[in-house]
Write a protein that binds this DNA or RNA. Structure first.
Lengths: 234, 234
DNA sequence: GCCAGGCTTGACACTTTCTTGACGTCTGTT
DNA sequence: AACAGACGTCAAGAAAGTGTCAAGCCTGGC
């Protein structure tokens, strides 16, 4: 449960600290198959990286050479709600209050335990991952709701088999582009089926029967003769 | 900006601590025109208060007479995302990690500065200005009361085993979405059971017998063949 | 140590999905 | 107009997935 990554990808962590020793230390303890580290060694570099990298968490040192850390927090908060965890040697209460009120999410005083840092990172990620908008594909009368794995035509829910859904998802994720027969066969049935283009035709047919208003005149899944199929947008 | 209350009303803070001295201290420092304090002096009283009071923040001591604080966090997290700030004398890193991973948002070691506590409360409130979900789920003739762990069908209380309740809760918390077999197995039985999809089927069957009017025609727990299960809304 | 409830496991019947082959249709070319 | 090649449809058997029952095991409470 703890620290589990449901996203099929790395969480990006941005470390903003001018001491390379700290950056190297964090790099060793945090670089694993869950986190991907980016580094910045000044406030301005950090601000730039926050915008370009779009990290999931920012670890920020307050004592930076160019900008004050508090200022960095404020500037980021002008446009982003990304969790900011302050790592600082300053242990005065005023510093903590100032950083937290400027928009920081958490404040750790150096030296800190690695386990605690990682637990606080996980806590911050858990909170911020709660409300991610759901990507729903829509084209004409066809709707594909990926998180719900729901396909509907004219608002009516349609029941797809696993293979049909995979096939539709493949076309949707490459909407507009032609997917060749071999690309589709490889992705869905595996290389062993490259010589069996028949299964593809059968499944396209079944899929069309379910999502096309008139399967003999496909609106969505267009045949590109001799090449493959293409999902048309509306 | 800092500490400003945009809601035309008090923020409700629930203090769960068995030492009346601490409660009185927090009451003095936090009771002002911004916060309204509620108090509970045991874990069970805290759980009950969390459900009835619906606080905006919970300040939780780990050393409670009846339940372990970690368990209190877990039980609250079963149905609520309310920010939980742990106040504890335990300063071992393991305690912090356990509390944070159980679902706590922050962890302060006693003694702490009042200013820091208030800043961390403000930070937690700032983040959680989202609407709190109802602690009771209702769909058709099915009702799940999370704080009380009570399930009823047609107003009639239904007795579920712990596993069945966990399973139902998982589906309810992801209502509408398809939970794949592996997601469910991982969450409830652990990764070791990924190759044992049979236990899942048996439990789904048992659960259906208890909550479905006609278990052979499920209204709530829908099978998505080859993929998983999904709780339908009405 | 016994009992009750809950969990796991296996057997088996049932349902859905996948694969395969036969055949029909379309399109562009000669 | 006939043909070739590619594409689409249908249906039946095979395979995979799913639901149910019940026996045995484990565990915690008494």
């Amino acid at each position: 449960m703890a620290g589990q990554n449901n996203r099929n990808s790395f969480y990006k962590i941005l470390v903003v600290d001018d001491e390379s020793a700290i950056r190297r230390f964090l790099s060793t303890v945090l670089s694993n198959d869950e986190f991907l580290l980016h580094e910045a060694e000044s406030g301005n570099a950090g601000l730039a990286a926050a915008a370009t990298v779009r990290p999931d968490v920012i670890l920020l040192d307050l004592g930076l050479p160019d900008l004050d850390g508090i200022e960095v927090i404020r500037r980021i908060r002008e446009w982003s709600q990304v969790p900011i965890i302050v790592l600082s040697v300053r242990e005065r209460e005023d510093d903590k209050v100032a950083a937290l009120d400027a928009g920081a999410d958490d404040y750790l005083t150096k030296p800190f335990g690695v386990g605690e840092l990682m637990a606080r990172i996980r806590a911050a990620l858990r909170r911020s991952q709660q409300d991610v908008p759901e990507p729903v594909f829509s084209s004409g009368n066809l709707q594909v709701d990926f998180p719900r794995r729901l396909v509907s035509v004219d608002g009516q829910e349609v029941q797809l088999t696993p293979t049909e859904y995979d096939l539709l998802r493949l076309l949707v994720t490459h909407v507009g582009k032609v997917m060749t027969h071999s690309q589709i066969l490889k992705q869905i049935w595996g290389v062993a089926y490259l010589e069996q283009p028949h299964v593809l035709r059968v499944n396209i047919s079944n899929l069309r029967r379910k999502i096309e208003t008139d399967p003999s005149r496909p609106q969505h899944i267009i045949t590109e003769p001799g090449v493959g199929y293409r999902l048309k947008t509306y």
